[in-house]
Simulated scan of single mutants.
Amino acid sequence: MYVQVKQFVKMLHTLSRLLDKAQRHAGENKSDSAVLLNSRLSPDMLPLTSQVQMACDTARLATSVLSGKKPPVFEGMEKTIPELKALIQKSIDYITSLKECDFSGWEERIVAPDGWAGAFKGEDYFYQHAVPNFYFHMVTAYAILRHKGVHIGKMDYIGQLPFLR
């Protein structure tokens, strides 16, 4: 499990770097970054701001319930790139505060996140909801930025790879 937690952290750092590129793009094009933050791929989809918030929420909730900890609650009132980057960092700080031993027995732990209609085995919750949901919001955030002309590519999404030298 702890390896997967590290992947959440890696991808949240990636999301922060994508927002840096979005900020530069807005500056270079003399446009308001709020336009990017309120952009969406389809009228029935949530805007970029919500995609970032939900990626952070998913990573925090998943690591919380699978470690048996109470998840931290953030208001979700971010409206600027610096505020979103601060949310990402707070999420990373929380996730990295958990220790590998906190996840002992996570696969069999019964989890019932607040507001959910039922409970899951930890392994089912993680692989069938948390991971796909996290990556859905990550990819959607990337796609919105790309669609709005921010100069990013596949390697900006994948990030640094741990090549052996």
Results as ranks from 00 to 15, higher is better:
residue 77 M to W: 02
residue 49 T to I: 00
residue 122 G to F: 01
residue 24 R to F: 09
residue 119 A to G: 11
residue 47 P to F: 02
residue 153 G to D: 01
residue 69 K to D: 11
residue 155 M to H: 09
residue 25 H to T: 08
residue 134 F to H: 04
residue 63 T to F: 01
residue 143 A to H: 10
residue 125 Y to D: 04
residue 83 E to Y: 07
residue 37 L to E: 06
residue 106 W to Y: 13
residue 54 M to I: 12
residue 64 S to T: 10
residue 115 G to R: 00
residue 136 F to I: 01
residue 51 Q to A: 09
residue 61 L to Y: 01
residue 151 H to M: 11
residue 105 G to A: 14
residue 140 T to P: 06
residue 53 Q to C: 08
residue 123 E to Q: 15
residue 75 E to N: 15
residue 27 G to R: 07
residue 93 D to L: 00
residue 146 R to Q: 07
residue 80 T to H: 08
residue 102 D to Q: 09
residue 61 L to I: 10
residue 121 K to N: 08
residue 136 F to C: 09
residue 83 E to R: 07
residue 47 P to T: 11
residue 91 S to P: 10
residue 55 A to E: 05
residue 30 K to P: 02
residue 73 V to Q: 15
residue 88 I to N: 04
residue 49 T to C: 05
residue 61 L to T: 10
residue 22 A to S: 12
residue 102 D to T: 07
residue 102 D to W: 05
residue 81 I to N: 07
residue 80 T to N: 05
residue 123 E to P: 02
residue 83 E to S: 13
residue 99 K to A: 11
residue 72 P to G: 09
residue 53 Q to V: 07
residue 23 Q to N: 12
residue 25 H to N: 01
residue 151 H to I: 11
residue 127 Y to S: 15
residue 91 S to L: 01
residue 56 C to N: 04
residue 36 L to Q: 01
residue 149 G to W: 00
residue 145 L to V: 06
residue 76 G to W: 04
residue 121 K to V: 07
residue 125 Y to M: 04
residue 131 V to K: 05
residue 126 F to E: 05
residue 32 D to I: 02
residue 126 F to V: 10
residue 18 L to Q: 05
residue 112 A to S: 15
residue 122 G to S: 10
residue 73 V to A: 14
residue 33 S to V: 13
residue 81 I to G: 06
residue 99 K to Q: 15
residue 91 S to Y: 03
residue 115 G to A: 05
residue 54 M to W: 07
residue 117 A to D: 13
residue 101 C to H: 12
residue 75 E to H: 14
residue 112 A to M: 12
residue 124 D to G: 10
residue 58 T to W: 00
residue 78 E to V: 03
residue 74 F to M: 12
residue 38 N to V: 06
residue 133 N to F: 07
